[in-house]
């Protein structure tokens, strides 16, 4: 089994010739939308990051690298927002992925009622960002909310989750882990795409469930794991809504996520120049990390075809 997979991986590049016309035809819609709607705002925000542009005065002067100097050396809240964001990414991203994959495996069966379970596990991911949701999460982590009630049953006295600087960010991390619905669905779709005959022949070979998981499921799923990892990484760095509606960055800026701080600067204080500079620093950091993950992918991601943009 392992041998056939390796062989597939080593397959020489297929006999597709280069075809510029067809290629651009297919990605044409994206290119059109990019040039029409995306390029200008992105370019403008890059230019603004070197200015002190203020939204209300609708003007700004070029100030060189002042914005960057300010954010790295003068702005104490900036450092805190970096801190909070990194902590969130380090814990929430792996947690979400592990939950998502675990539950997807659990739900990838033909048992009766699995559709209902799937809906139940996906449900927390669709509650969205309305004000009611903020009240709901506060209630759940409140002093006599569900979390502390459960801890109480186990004989543990729960902390004042949202009120303590040490625990507040954990409510958001748990919330993120709770809302693993989207990577879970993608994993499920990926599991569905694994040809059944691979499992059947493995079973004939006498592989047990764990071996099948290790030798078939995991390698066949690596393109999807790779995708989910990249996307969770990006969305982890850009996390906004949870802090925006639930904690507003409190207490003591321990949940002041980067994107929330960018938003505050941009729209509450109208400092769009400074906000743009912050956004571009984040873009570079995410891009660097993403590039690293892409680099590593040749060692662990298995494709059925070597075709692909990266």
């Amino acid at each position: 089994m392992a041998a056939t997979l390796t062989k597939a991986k080593r397959r020489k590049p297929s006999n597709f010739g280069q075809d510029n016309l067809v290629g651009y035809l297919f990605i044409g819609p994206w290119l059109a939308a990019f040039f029409l709607f995306t390029l200008i705002p992105i370019a403008v925000s890059l230019v603004l990051s070197f200015t002190d542009y203020n939204v209300l005065s609708n003007s700004g002067d070029f100030i060189g690298l002042d914005n960057f100097q300010r954010m790295f050396f003068e702005d104490r809240r900036y450092a805190r927002s970096v801190n909070a964001t990194l902590k969130y990414v380090v814990f929430a991203v792996p947690l979400r992925l592990v939950f998502a994959l675990g539950v997807a495996m659990l739900l990838n069966t033909w048992r009766r009622g699995v559709g209902v379970y799937r809906a139940a596990f996906y449900a927390p991911s669709i509650v969205g960002g309305s004000i009611a949701v903020a009240v709901m999460w506060r209630e759940i982590f409140g002093n006599d909310g569900l979390v502390n009630f459960t801890l109480n049953l186990l004989g543990i006295e729960g902390p004042n989750w949202l009120g303590r600087p040490e625990t507040a960010i954990w409510t958001l991390i748990i919330l993120a882990a709770w809302q693993f619905g989207s990577p879970m669905l993608i994993f499920l779709a990926g599991l569905k795409n694994i040809p059944r005959h691979l499992y059947e022949s493995a079973e004939i070979d006498g592989a047990n469930a764990f071996q099948r998981f290790l030798r078939i499921t995991l390698p066949m799923l690596t393109p999807i794991i790779f995708f989910n990892l990249i996307m969770q990484l990006i969305s982890g760095f850009m996390v906004f809504t949870q802090a925006f509606i639930v904690t507003q960055g409190k207490p003591l800026d321990t949940t002041l996520f980067y994107a929330l701080y960018v938003y505050r600067r941009a729209f509450e204080l109208n400092e769009m120049g400074y906000a743009s500079a912050m956004a571009w620093v984040m873009l570079m950091v995410i891009a660097l990390l993403t590039a690293l993950v892409f680099r590593s992918s040749s060692y662990w991601v298995h494709y059925e075809s070597d075709e692909g943009p990266a």
């Binding site: 002093n143 004042n160 949202l162 303590r164 904690t247 507003q248 207490p251």
Partner: peptide, 12 residues
């Protein structure tokens, strides 16, 4: 009310 408690309850 403690400040901590007010943060936990949030501005609702």
């Amino acid at each position: 009310q403690s400040y901590e408690d007010s943060v936990a309850r949030g501005d609702q």
